[in-house]
Nucleic acid binder design. Structure first.
Length: 596
RNA sequence: GGUCCUGUAGCUCAACUGGAUAGAGCAACUGCCUUCUAAGCAGUAGGUUUCAGGUUCGAGUCCUGACAGGAUCACCA
């Protein structure tokens, strides 16, 4: 049973019967009534005054009367200006609850037969992950889970940037100053080891530039002529020529980095179904350049470089192949797009990449559409804003980054500190306590990064640590743990809340019906989050739900209730709330504890 | 300079896609633990939604123009 649909159908009939006018269902919409007014749903009549040829008040009253007489769930109404507030038969919420409670597929919409790939993370292998990557990884993982819940068949992909000049920089520095250091000998995680040499490269490179400038070169020339840079460029050429020594070092350093990344991903709680490596894909796309030339979509300039003209689409001319026949970034991206499609026959392909690449993806997608790719219209760039520090932008070369491993550990430590301070670890052994700190610390961090609309840039202030109260992950986790405690007690005293008997219930409290209303919104929110690729929708919903539950919890002490039927109903209501929170949090990649 | 994104309480964010008196959290203040977990609940205070026009019954939301911040416009990735 869908209450909203039955009301909307009623409104449609009202228009036919009273005004002899057809209104289509999808034109009509209901809004939840604001708290300060009586009612559950509100229908706004202003847009229909031309049809009704009447005042707002009269129109609202006429429709209200019709609905009251003809729609069973509506028990009454009131009119404020042009707003028709519909009051529902309170017991209808009990029916809604019964249906939700017996639904086995909580938080899972039916399969839609569509395949989608979510590409995220996509790290460079020359340095460890930082705060910006955390936002990317949490977003990508969460969006993938949300799309699964929407009925898609989802492939999580990671396109690892394991080649290129930046990796060569780390390698050159390592050759010069590494002294054969390894993760084992240094005690550094492999990705941090590689990052260390990336920073050393930059430092030494700058010294060389200064030296050259002192000898009279211009800044610009010095940057191009510094021996270290030339060395890195030479190394890249050797790598492309498959030089054995270079490739061996490259494999060695990358394998260290992968070991490090694996640990970081595990701590983050993210995973992938498919890895692509740029060392395999960087030559792809040249055949597409040929195809584009044949089709007349691309054109060649005198020096042999190939371009696409996107001025009709509001963009510029864009290079797709260099004059010397080598690839640029977009060349391999075209090739990879085809590769992904051929591998998985995707209906949709989501790229989780920062908003500094908005233009690039705009170009890429327009090209693929011009080329007539069947998947062209399913391409989507999930563009998210940068995470800024109070000092401004993070710069990995200058070491002003918030390291992902460090930050996660700090959050876990902070969670441990809070928990001990509150004296909430009675009855936990050490292993359980550590698990709880991990759950809470990462929950706080993930929620913090996901509750904000992805496309907005956000500020992270390391000095003011992430909160554990209010609109936070731990608040929602706490609400879940509280409910679990109630369920344990209910089981102890033998309350059958799995098959409750509702026969004694003749009315509902306001906090009960409000809670049921919210529980009933879950699937709608999942749908919305999927359409907008926005975990923030789920985060906001879960906060509202937890808040509403805590109101109910304070309002109606469950075990003080004498009537067994009502008591069992309230435990069942709590159980459904816990299940909804748990499922919703899992869509954000956040675990919830049984106790805390 | 062109293009794109953002601008809401001191701070961090919402606002059901054009609806009612713009809502939460943090910070501040006031109550509530003789027990379903106070990481909670209830309340007080805090606003010319950057500014100026426009569209209409109605604008934080749409349009135009300023202003501020950011990104991007490489034969870099």
């Amino acid at each position: 049973m869908n209450i909203q649909e039955s009301i909307i159908t009623g409104i449609q009939l009202a228009f036919q019967n009273i005004y002899n006018h057809d209104v289509s269902m999808d034109q009509l919409s209901l809004a939840p009534t604001r708290r300060e007014f009586e009612g559950t749903y509100t229908f706004v009549v202003f847009p229909y005054l031309k049809v009704t040829q009447s005042t707002p008040e009269a129109t609202a009253n006429q429709i209200g009367e019709y609905l009251k007489a003809n729609v069973a769930v509506i028990s009454g109404f009131n009119v404020v200006k042009g707003f028709l507030n519909l009051e529902l038969n309170q017991l209808i919420w009990l029916e809604v609850f019964k249906e939700l409670y017996t639904n086995k597929a909580l938080g899972q919409l039916p399969a839609n037969g569509q395949k989608v790939m979510v590409e995220y993370s996509s790290p460079n292998t020359n340095k460890p992950l930082h705060l910006g990557h955390l936002r990317n990884n949490f977003l990508g993982f969460s969006v993938a889970e949300i799309l699964k819940a929407n009925g898609y068949e989802v492939t999580k992909a990671n396109l690892v940037n394991d080649r290129g000049i930046h990796i060569c920089k780390s390698m050159v520095a390592y050759q010069h100053w590494g002294n054969g250091e390894t993760p084992d000998s240094s005690g550094l995680k492999g990705d941090h080891l590689a990052g260390k040499y990336y920073v050393i490269f930059d430092k030494e490179y700058k010294k060389e530039i200064e030296g050259l400038v002192a000898l009279g070169q211009s800044q610009e020339d010095a940057k191009k002529n510094a021996p270290l840079l030339l060395e890195a460029q030479e190394m890249l050429r050797k790598w492309e020529a498959n030089d054995e020594e270079v490739v061996t070092l490259w494999k060695q350093m990358n394998s260290w980095v992968y070991e490090g990344f694996a640990k970081t991903y595990e701590k983050m709680g993210v995973d992938f179904d498919k890895f692509y490596y740029e060392s395999d894909t960087y030559l792809l796309g040249k055949d597409i350049v040929e195809e584009g030339l044949e089709k007349g979509i691309f054109f060649k300039k005198e020096n042999g470089s190939v371009w696409v003209d996107l001025t009709e689409e509001g963009l510029d001319e864009k290079l797709v192949l260099r004059g010397d026949g080598t690839s640029v970034y977009i060349t391999q991206d075209m090739g990879t797009a085809d590769l992904k499609y051929n591998d998985f026959k995707l209906d949709k392909s989501v790229y989780v990449v920062g908003n500094e690449q908005d233009y690039h993806f705009d170009v890429l997608f327009k090209i693929m559409k011009k080329l007539g790719r069947p998947y062209g219209k399913g391409l989507y760039h999930l563009s998210y804003g940068m995470v800024d520090l109070p000092s401004g932008k993070m710069k990995s070369r200058e070491g002003t980054v918030v390291d992902a491993d460090d930050l996660m550990q700090e959050m876990v430590d902070t969670a441990a500190h809070h928990t001990k301070e509150l004296g909430k670890i009675d009855g936990f052994n050490e292993e359980q306590a550590d698990e709880l700190y991990e759950t809470l610390g990462l929950g706080a961090l993930k929620y913090f990064l996901l509750k904000v609309d992805p496309k907005k840039r956000m500020l992270f202030n390391p000095e003011e640590s992430i909160e554990f109260q209010g609109n936070t992950g731990p608040f929602i986790q706490y609400s879940h743990a509280r409910i679990k405690s109630i369920m344990r007690k209910a089981e102890q005293i033998g309350v059958d809340y799995e098959n409750p008997d509702f026969s004694d219930i003749t009315s509902l409290e306001e906090s009960e019906s409000s809670l049921i209303f919210l529980l009933g919104e879950f699937h709608k929110k999942i749908k919305m989050a999927g359409e907008e690729y926005s975990p923030a929708v789920i985060a906001q919903y879960l906060f509202d739900l937890a808040k509403e539950y805590n109101r109910f919890y304070a309002d109606l002490p469950i075990f003080h209730e004498d009537n067994h039927s009502i008591l069992a109903f309230r435990v069942a209501l709590s159980a459904l709330t816990a299940a909804t929170i748990k499922k919703g949090m899992s869509l954000l990649g956040i675990n919830v504890p049984e106790r805390m």
